[in-house]
C-alpha cells in the first residue's frame, strides 16, 4: 500500500427528496506518473489511483478511469440527485491493488 493515503469526502448530512447535492472528494496520494527518474537515472515506478467510483444505494453515480499525469492528491467535485435516504459509497482503486473506501449516509429532511 502506498504511504500516507487517506480518503476524504464532504457530503451534506441531509437533503430534500429529489435534491441535487454537491459532493467533494479528495484522496491524499502521491500519484507517481511512472515517467520520472530518480537521482541515479532509474525510472520511478508508476503508482497512481487508476479508478474512482461513487455509488448511491448500489446505483452508480460516477465511474472515472484515471490516467498518469493527474496531479498529486486528486480531487473530484460532482453533483448527484438524492431520491431517497441512503448511503453514498466512494471507492478508489490503487495501482498496487489496494482499495480505499469511504461512505456517507444522507437523511431526507
Amino acid at each position: 500500500m502506498a504511504q500516507g493515503v487517506k480518503p476524504r469526502v464532504k457530503a451534506p448530512k441531509t437533503a430534500a427528496a429529489g435534491e441535487t447535492v454537491t459532493l467533494k472528494t479528495l484522496i491524499s496520494h502521491k500519484m507517481e506518473s511512472g515517467q520520472r527518474k530518480d537521482k541515479d537515472g532509474n525510472v520511478i515506478p508508476r503508482s497512481i489511483i487508476n479508478r474512482f467510483t461513487c455509488e448511491f444505494n448500489g446505483k452508480s453515480v460516477i465511474d472515472v478511469k484515471m490516467e498518469p499525469s493527474i496531479s498529486t492528491n486528486p480531487y473530484f467535485e460532482f453533483e448527484a440527485v438524492v431520491p431517497e435516504a441512503g448511503e453514498f459509497k466512494f471507492t478508489w482503486y490503487d495501482d498496487d491493488g489496494s482499495v480505499y473506501e469511504e461512505a456517507k449516509s444522507v437523511k431526507i429532511g
Partner: peptide
C-alpha cells in the same frame, strides 16, 4: 476541504 494545505495540517 478545498485547501490542499490542510492535508499537511492533518
Amino acid at each position: 476541504f478545498d485547501n490542499p494545505g490542510m492535508i499537511f495540517v492533518e
